[in-house]
């Protein structure tokens, strides 16, 4: 279980990127963080990945406090970030430390099979298309069997067809080990396709506006009515979060209502 407690991040120049984030993600759950630009989605992910330090609050994984990059936490960035001097095979194997050569080979080959790039193992990243590169990057994160996988808008630079096929590859890999996934996106369709829960965020300072459970059965039918309804619900929440930048979070309002009532 991944839990964020009163997490805040203020940059050196005084910008409040995140303020008092509280979020619990259960084991094997896919949570999608969604919101307009500048609402701190990426910052939040970088904090969990240990690439930045929080200003206040803490992040716990199964009770253990995270400080800095952790072996059980993997991340896929917005860009593939493959190392251009390593072959596709070696790129996927990059994070496999302390594993025997045979085991490494088996794991990487299995991952290559899963992402449908088995015959490209010996090629350079430069020979792959953008979508293929991103698949390699996802495989690189999965191959170390992380408990938590962070995805930072990994499909935003791809065309719609490639994106849909990557969603399937991602879910295919996820089915195997069922890691906890935190997916940052600004694409509502994507959130509804992949996630068990959508967390809508709000900017200035970045905070959680609303949480919506997405309880559709898998595999999800993107053309069905339940899918459409879910998309609309998330869109509405997103709309509210943007239209009412000063709107206060739910519990704040409850507390004020309670105060008035008394």
């Amino acid at each position: 279980m991944l839990s964020l407690e009163h997490l805040s991040k203020t940059y050196a120049d005084g910008t409040r990127a995140l303020s008092d984030i509280n979020l619990t993600v259960h084991e094997g759950e896919i949570v999608s963080l969604i919101g307009g630009s500048g609402c701190g989605k990426t910052t939040l992910l970088r904090l969990i990945a240990g690439l930045d330090r929080e200003s206040a609050g803490q992040i716990r994984l199964d009770g253990e406090r995270l400080s800095g990059p952790h072996p059980a936490v993997g991340i896929v960035f917005q860009e593939p970030r493959l190392l251009p001097w390593l072959s596709v095979f070696d790129n996927i194997a990059f994070g496999l430390a302390g594993v025997s050569a045979a085991e490494k080979k088996a794991r990487v080959e299995h991952a290559l099979e899963k992402i449908g790039l088995a015959e490209h193992a010996r090629r350079w990243p430069r020979d792959l298309s953008g979508g293929q590169q991103q698949r390699v990057s996802i495989a690189r994160a999965f191959v170390t069997n992380p408990k938590v996988l962070l995805l930072d808008e990994p499909f935003s630079a791809l065309d719609a067809f490639t994106r849909a096929s990557l969603h399937e590859h991602l879910l295919g890999l996820w089915e195997e080990t069922r890691p906890t996934v935190v997916l940052v996106t600004h694409d509502v369709q994507e959130a509804v396709t992949l996630a068990d829960r959508a967390v809508v965020m709000q900017p200035k300072p970045g905070r959680i506006f609303d949480e919506l459970p997405l309880t559709l059965s898998r595999p999800r039918d993107r053309t069905g009515l339940p899918f459409e309804t879910s998309v609309r619900r998330v869109l509405t929440a997103l709309d509210h979060s943007l239209k009412a930048p000063q709107a206060q979070p739910q519990r704040e309002r409850d507390r004020q209502a309670a105060a008035l009532w008394w």
Binding site: G50, L51, P69, I75, F77, E79, R81, G95
Partner: peptide, 21 residues
Amino acid sequence: RKLVEVGHVFRLSRLQLARRI
């Protein structure tokens, strides 16, 4: 910097970072 961050994510030591990235 983005490639260096990949090294950080996989917790490379300073020496490993220098050699591998």
